[in-house]
């Protein structure tokens, strides 16, 4: 893993140690993954459908707890805490998630959507604090100027790309340690995709991000590091430039050149 970009030579924000996830006993969707994610980097997780990239991502914020049949083993260390031994609600506040389909809460206004994390966690804020969080978060995702006069409209009134930026703002409002994104642009048009990508590059100054993507050129455009997964195994994790130019593994090379996928 010597080629992985680590912007400031810092300690990893997230570390996987021998992580495995199984849906049915003995059948592994993610197999013995060990690696590290560094602060202020964007890491793209690539691989063919069913290779376990989303499964790995969802293991980080304990989304697998929702389904009794899924078992996660190993250690996932987020900011020094073993995720699998920490209360899932605490973990999820440290790891924001953005989904494939933009999903602002339909009954809440734009304003309330940004604050949803606080409301759902029963955190009381006064008006100034609320206004500040909303403005900061929406400025962060470059949505403030577009919606500042429509704060009380429902989130679903926005376009798909704006909705997805609202969802990112909603996740950022809680000031998470990492931002997990599961194909966040695959439901969006190219222009909206482009805006989100610019936004992610901007956000990298403050956050560490993992982004599952099917889109190799997207990975090449925005990520510092790339993970290539195949059949549940982490085949290669490297600096994106190196991975795309001189992949170390034959499988990676075949995937990147379109031999399979």
């Amino acid at each position: 893993m010597e080629g992985i970009t680590n912007q400031n030579g810092m300690e990893p924000v997230l570390r996987f140690i021998d992580v495995s996830v199984s849906y049915t006993p003995g059948v592994y969707a993610v197999k013995n993954v060990s690696t590290a994610i560094y602060p202020n980097t964007i890491t793209a997780v690539m691989g063919p459908s069913g290779c376990g990239k989303s499964t790995l991502l969802r293991a980080i914020n304990r989304m697998h707890d929702l389904y009794a049949n899924i078992k996660t083993t190993g250690q996932i260390i987020l900011k020094g805490k073993d995720v699998l031994k920490t209360d899932p609600m605490e973990v999820r506040r440290m790891a924001g998630m953005v989904f494939q389909q933009p999903n602002p809460f339909p009954t809440m206004s734009i304003y309330d959507n940004v604050l949803a994390g606080y409301k759902l966690n029963g955190i009381k804020l006064n008006k100034e604090e609320k206004d500040e969080i909303v403005e900061d978060s929406l400025r962060n995702v470059a949505l403030w100027n577009e919606v500042k006069d429509a704060m009380n409209k429902r989130g679903s009134f926005l376009s798909g790309g704006q909705q997805q930026r609202l969802c990112i703002a909603r996740a950022l409002a809680l000031k998470p340690e990492v931002l997990l994104m599961d194909e966040p642009t695959s439901a969006l048009d190219p222009i909206s995709t482009n805006r989100i990508e610019e936004l992610l590059l901007e956000l990298r100054k403050q956050y560490s991000m993992l982004i599952v993507t099917h889109n190799m050129s997207q990975a090449a455009r925005i990520s510092d590091n790339s993970m290539f997964m195949y059949l549940g195994e982490l085949v290669e994790h490297n600096n994106t430039k190196q991975m795309f130019t001189k992949p170390r593994n034959r499988r990676t090379e075949e995937y990147l050149t379109g031999v399979f996928g």
């Binding site: 914020n61 989304m63 929702l66 609600m89 605490e90 973990v91 999820r92 506040r93 924001g96 998630m97 989904f99 999903n103 809460f105 949803a116 994390g117 759902l120 966690n121 969802c167 909603r170 996740a171 809680l174």
Partner: peptide
């Protein structure tokens, strides 16, 4: 999932 992912 989005609600739970916010720590709710």
């Amino acid at each position: 999932e989005a609600g739970l992912a916010l720590g709710s």
